Simulated assay, not measured.
Amino acid sequence: MKLNNYEIKGFIKVALLFFAFLIGFSSLWFTNNLVKKLASQEREKIATWANATRQIAASEGDNDINFIYEIIQGNTTIPVILTNEKGEVIGSRNLDSTLSVKSKKIEKKIEDMRAQNEPIEVLLDDGKKNIIYYENSLLLSQLKVYPYFQLGVIGLFLVMSYFAFSYSRTSEQNKVWAGMSKETAHQLGTPISSLMGWVDYLKESKNNVPQKVLDEIDHDMQRLSLITERFSKIGSEPTLVSYNLYDVLEESVSYINNRTSIKVDISLKNEELFKKVSVNVNKPLFAWVVENLCKNAVDAMDGEGQIYFEIDQILPNSVVFDVVDNGKGIAANKFKTIFKPGYTTKKRGWGLGLSLVKRIIENYHNGKIYVKSSDLGKGTRFRIELNTQV
């Protein structure tokens, strides 16, 4: 079975994630075992060091004393402190040169060693005892930290891989959007030009076509031309022009009101506030946003209800306004999903409307659009933020 690009990318993501976890788990397991073995060996070394110390204390001759000293001197990596049973420091090995035997720092060092490893007691022939405190060597300490460092590297690798794939997917989607839009505009352009010629022919002919009919045909032709222009702008950098927010919204609202049921009321609340604001928009694309939001709301209300636009805030460089309806509402876990291409609750929907709306607002106008709030069975409030000129 042949896999498509999305399935291949999905498989690669899962494979990378699996191998990353496998590498991380294997590394942790191996390093932990190595740390345990090394810790055991270091304790054996200290036990040998302790035995050598006891033998020196009990030695009456020089038969094996040099060999015993060699054992003691052979410890060059493990920090060790030797005390008598009263806690007085008798000797030490591999400590920081700044530590003084009589300082408080040495007492703190002994406490740290006791917390890290169980002290070893050295029983002497006279019944007294010495105590050996030790801590892990530098190598062992580094090995204990190494797995976490390695996990951090693996995590960084996963994050970088995720962003790389996301960027690749976004780029591919942008190319698809642009290609489809421009091809649609191209395919519409030829028949529209032909139809415009036929309309001009009808106007000049003597077929007694009612003027009202010609006006309606002409209006629909202009509408088709506007749709073609919208598609042609997707994928290219649109020109933003300053428009009065009220004028832009009112034009779109009037168009939709004339083409929807009289049972649906679409309006602007606090019109005077809208009239105070100018927004930097591409008018054809922004009108497309308004129409898509209103059409979705009408569908959610089953052709009966109320839609209104309401300003929330007018800031020095931006305006925040809401599009509110009293339709079916949106589940909270779908607030972000509804903007993804292909998501739809309609039987014959393509799931492109809100995805296109988000692309126009955020990619082409540097604004924001999101679901501010929604209650199932009560309605939804979409929030839009745009750059302004007050």
Rank of each mutant, 00 (worst) to 15 (best):
A39E: 13
I23L: 12
S92P: 02
L34Y: 11
N75I: 01
S40M: 02
N84V: 00
E44V: 00
L124W: 15
L99S: 06
K105F: 04
E118T: 07
N117E: 02
E111G: 03
I46M: 05
G87K: 13
I46K: 09
N94D: 10
W49M: 04
T53G: 06
I68D: 14
N75S: 06
L28C: 02
D125S: 12
D64A: 03
N51Y: 04
S27A: 09
N33V: 00
I56Y: 11
I68T: 09
N63Q: 13
N63E: 13
F30R: 12
N94G: 06
D112N: 11
K37D: 10
I71F: 05
E107A: 08
E42C: 01
I72C: 10
K45Q: 11
S40Y: 07
S26N: 07
N51Q: 10
Q73M: 05
K86Y: 06
W29I: 00
E111R: 15
F67R: 11
S92K: 12
I90M: 13
V122H: 09
A20E: 07
N117R: 04
E42W: 03
Q55E: 10
P79K: 08
K105E: 15
E85Q: 15
W49A: 02
G87V: 01
T98Q: 09
T98G: 12
S26T: 06
N117V: 00
E107L: 07
S40F: 02
D125Q: 10
K86L: 03
D126H: 08
F19W: 05
W29T: 05
Q41L: 03
D62R: 12
I78A: 04
L124I: 00
S40G: 03
K86M: 03
I90T: 05
N66T: 02
G24P: 09
I65E: 15
E118G: 06
K105R: 12
W49E: 08
T98V: 02
E70H: 14
Q73K: 15
I65S: 14
L123F: 05
Q55T: 02
Y69D: 11
R43A: 03
D96A: 10
A20L: 04
S100H: 15
I106K: 14
Q55I: 00
V122Y: 10
T98M: 04
N75Y: 08
G24L: 01
E121N: 09
K108E: 15
E118R: 04
N66Q: 10
I81E: 08
L34M: 06
R54S: 05
Q73G: 14
P119K: 07
T77R: 15
A115I: 01
N32Y: 03
N63I: 00
I72A: 10
T76M: 09
D64V: 01
S26F: 05
F30W: 14
N66A: 07
V80A: 07
G74H: 06
N84A: 02
